Structures are given as structure tokens and as C-alpha cells.
Amino acid sequence: MKRDDAAASDPVDARLGGRLAELRAEHGWSLGELAERSGISKSTLSRAERAEISPTAALLNRLCNVYGRTMSQLLSEVEAEPAPVLRAAEQRVWEDRASGFVRRSVSPPHGGLRGELVEGRLAAGADLAYDRPPVPGLEQHIWVLDGTLAVTAQGSEHHLDTGDCLRLRVWGPTRFRCVGPGETRYVLAVVRP
């Protein structure tokens, strides 16, 4: 481990330290538990998380092994700050023509952020069913901008009209249906646990 008095002022080291602390918290591990799993002392782990030191490649490799990710994945999560402005022309749009669903990634996911915004459009009669969440316990806020939307989650169906918002954590199957005579447009705010 190299000592680096400038580590605290290095924005990459600061973001890396923050991400390492987030990963440990996501796993619910104490510094002691992570030290046992990685073979790295608690004090070194603590200093790396607080960006008091600049971690070596060997230390990062050990942590990547414990967290089940490549070093490239870890570094890509911290190398660049997310762009503060995403112009409409840069927002990716994906269409599922078979179901009548159009998805615009208004604020796409980024390793340094936990939330994202999606604009969804469902054609009249469109019916989307998901058998499971991509991440159990995913937080979602569904705000209907135009039309009527029926959302089924945790065994309950919720009818949402223009302006209504449904807040939930997703643990199992969900279903989105456009029940109005016209299309439905909504905002989906997604927050990783």
C-alpha cells in the first residue's frame, strides 16, 4: 500500500473510496468481516474507504475477488463523474414493437449513482409482464403523465390516472397495462437498494 498525502484531494481516489464503502455496506459487512474475507487489515480498509491512501492494484484485486467483480468494472464505476446534463437527443430510446412499449432512458444508470429516470409509453391495450425484478427490493416511483395505467405488484392491482404516483419496492412479478382508449405516458424513477 503506497502512502499518498494527495489521496484525499484526488477525486478518483475519493470516488473509489466512496464506492468501496458502498460495496461493503451493500453486503452488510463490518470492516472486520471484510478484513477476514479479503486478508486486508481493518485499518487499511478503513483508510482506503476514507481516501486517506491510494489503494494498490494488489489491494483492489483482493477486494474485486471478494465482491465478485473485475477491476475494470470497479474502476468504470468511479473513473468519470456522470454527465450533469443529458440532452434529449442523447437519451437512448428502445422500442418493443411486439408489445407496444417505448422506453426512453432520460437519466441512465451510472455506477456512481443509485437512481435513474425512464419515460415509458404504452400503446392502447399494451400489456407488459415481468416475472421478477432485475434487483430484488428495487425501489420504483411510477408517475403517470398522460393516460391511465394499471400496475400489478405484490398481488395488488393499482389503477393510476394522469398525475397519480405509485411508490413501491419490487420483490416479485409486476405487470404494466395501458387501460385507456389512448396511449399512456409515465415516468419511472428507479432507485437501487
Rank of each mutant, 00 (worst) to 15 (best):
H159W: 11
L128K: 14
P134G: 07
A124L: 11
G182F: 07
A153M: 12
T174N: 09
I142H: 03
V151C: 08
C165H: 04
A123Y: 10
A123R: 13
L168I: 01
P134L: 13
A150G: 05
G182K: 15
D146E: 09
F176C: 03
Y130I: 04
T148I: 07
C165E: 12
L160S: 02
D164Q: 01
L145Y: 10
D131Y: 04
D164E: 08
P133C: 09
D164H: 01
R175E: 00
H158M: 09
I142S: 09
R167H: 06
T174C: 03
V144F: 11
H158G: 00
D127C: 11
R169P: 08
V151H: 03
T162H: 12
A153T: 03
G182C: 10
G172Q: 05
P133G: 02
H158S: 01
P136D: 15
Q154V: 02
D146V: 05
H158D: 00
R175V: 03
G180F: 15
Q154I: 01
A129F: 15
D127G: 02
W143P: 00
G163T: 10
E157D: 12
Q154T: 05
E157G: 00
E157A: 10
A150F: 04
G155R: 07
A126G: 02
C178G: 07
R169I: 03
V170M: 12
R177K: 13
